[in-house]
Design a protein around this nucleic acid. Sequence first.
RNA 1: GCCCAAGUGGUGGAACUGGUAGACGCGCUGGACUCAAAAUCCAGUACCGAAAGGUGUGUCGGUUCGAUUCCGACCUUGGGCACCA
Length: 847
Amino acid sequence: MARYNAKDSEKRWQAEWDVRGLFRTPPHSEAPKCYVLEMFPYPSGRIHMGHARNYTMGDVIARFRRAQGYNVLHPMGWDAFGLPAENAARDKGVSPRDWTYENIAHMREQLKMMGLSIDWSREFATCDVGYYHQQQKLFLEFYKAGFVHRQEADVNWDPVDMTVLANEQVIDGRGWRSGAVVERRKLSQWFFRITQFADELLAGLDTLDRWPEKVRLMQKNWIGRSEGLRFQFTLSDGEKLDVFTTRPDTLFGASFVALSPEHPLAQEMAKKDENLAAFIAECRHVGTAEADIEKAEKKGYDTGLKAIHPFDENWALPVMVANFVLMGYGTGAIFGCPAHDQRDLDFARKYSLPVTAVVVPEGIDPKTFDVGAEAYTGPGRLANSRFLDGMSADDAKAEVARRLEAAGVGERTVNYRLRDWLVSRQRPWGCPIPMIHCAKCGVVPVPEDQLPVKLPEKINFAVKGNPLDADVGWKTTTCPTCGGAATRDTDTLDTFVDSSWYFARFAAPHAAEPVDKAATDYWLPVDQYIGGIEHAILHLLYARYITRAMHKLGMVEVAEPFAGLFTQGMVCHETYKDAKGDWVSPDEVTKEGGKAFRTADHAEITIGPSEKMSKSKKNVIAPEAIIADYGADTIRWFMLSDTPPERDIEWTDAGAEGCWRFVQRVWRLASESEGLAAPGTPVTATDEASLNLRRATHRAIAAVTENLEALRFNNAVAQVYTLANAIGVAEKCDAAARREAIEALVLLCAPMMPHLAEECWRALGHDRLVAETPWLKYDAALIQTDSVTLAVQVNGKRRGEITMPKDSDGKAAESAALALDGVIRALDGKAPKKVIVVPNRIVNVVA
RNA sequence: GCCCAAGUGGUGGAACUGGUAGACGCGCUGGACUCAAAAUCCAGUACCGAAAGGUGUGUCGGUUCGAUUCCGACCUUGGGCACCA
């Protein structure tokens, strides 16, 4: 037989699946449903190894579940709005629309070459008018429900991308895309009230038992719930000031009250106090210029104002403006208790404010307890606190809260770190926000019959700022309420909005409403969602929020969109540098005996650590090149082999060749085996060689099934190898048993290497496609063995082994173990004190 | 600084609820086939030791008949958050 020709075979089977419409999901089915989804790609133009890994995993699950009889939905679409299209448009003078759709066409072909079992009839791009039209409706629904609000606020401005960013999109003080240091600007923008759902989003995490613990924890920290007390100080000028604390128990240790520089009261006072104004300006400066210099010194300014202690009208605390108090959290004002908060302590030491310990560790005399350079934040009993003295910190918290509530100046509240989601973007390649600004009527939603608000055909990138804002023809409209002249909102929605509900749209991609209730009720939640860990907060939190908001409006039944989540690792490759220190691409490098040389001039190349494939480090391998050389099945098999799917995988040439060899080996086993029984022959042989092969076959079926169910692809692959080895070394045995083993090998490979499986299946004489063949069931009787090998230990050290009939008596095992040479030698004449027998596992002799 | 995860051969990794550490792949070594090469097949491959045996899952301790697995401390790496009161 000829070698397996992947190129030819893969094309043929892809066409065959397509012609038969095998992956077209029927709208209705009696079978249980399974919705498998990988995070949809941005249409950058070509797929990379990260895509190859992500979509291979999803495809394995989809094919496996389909074979198991599930009604599977496995769609694909494009996260198609966003900045790269604008940049390409500006650089190359093409339209972002053309650029995007050309990229989509190219990537679609590449994904098809991967042999993915996708229902392409459901494909859409978020930049399709049909999609963003529905998104505009969704926005207006949210607006009507009060989920959306417009607010002037200090926002994060990315000076490179020329747009505002949500809090989640600022990482280490820099824009998540551009890497530019963000600036603060005061702008009027649209927000989604995600904080309204903070509690639900937090509580919902506990229901997501098929999510990685890590992601749930990250979201929990991001939401950042803390319980505390909000209460009022009366100031010396008679005004009131709200503060928030989680430590009301330390109220008698207070030595100052501090305001954020952005606090309205501080701003007000700054109008009459030049020095304060200068101080505030200085704080603002530090905050923006060098976010990295976070270790900034604590600085304060005494306003001269006093705050009256709520439990003692004769106790006046200085009111300071302090650079470390955040306006965005709590009320933007705090009381400082230096003994029990490190920041307050640093501050108090600097400005010589009193430090009074009021919580003292259990068993320590308050008189001897002294706070040095470190604040005490542990538990303890109250001291120096009048009516609280002797209470535990928890009791004291409750008592202070009770008294301040009774006095009508306090309220127990919950605070979140989470902020509302700023969704306005000053970019032209996005979903236009369907709002109209009228001088007379204010902000007015676009009436439904005037939707969609389409993007202009031509976008002029030569203008400064947002092209939509500069496009007078597009911007000018009439007010739907009064009919007068008005302008459109020229902002577009954050592209994370686009990706926050696409999974619901896939259930009925052509529905006249954003979601078709019946279809989403059937398909949602997504049973298995797969994507990169980098979306642990941003995308996954937004998608959970939008789903909850839709749920509240009765649009979808589910509250959580993704029942199962899997976060896959990155694809890495060795890095290469030449003598000058410049990065060298792997295809310019030849390796000999562990050393690397530049192919062109044989100059030695330094091999660096394996890192995520990136253009900047030139360590990128294109999937299309591998497909061209070895075929899609090889790349798929590689992505699943060896490395657990959640970890980073390293691409190596040797590994790829190993995969290719295995493809050939499976092909040889299926195509060259002589003397196989005819297809469908029942296996009746009971000779030892045949039984051994049958046991290996059924063990492999059981193990691969179990591993695929648990997404342990690397272990599933190892089990397939084990079966292939067993077939290879099997002695002459029954022809039907041999066929059974080879067919099992082919079918077990099928979700992972679907083209190869079809070719082998055909070679084995089958007419029906593997893609139409049900998953194998193992015979439990064949997995059982009647004899087992027990390890024998003396004092926990292995000294030999015994083979016993399964489930044999402990006494028999004991005497067999004691008779072993190694055991006798180890005992050295001593009598065993005790013998522990774990049935079918181990015998341990204690000497 | 706080929170979380992970440290196993030359290498990627395996080991169910504490029970034979190193499955399976890559690499390497030897052999077969070949004029030769490729491909393929067979055997071997944790470390020390000629062997008996000993030592081994980041380090140090603990619990246990028995620990990669449980507990404590520490080290290293990776990730998240970072003046959140």
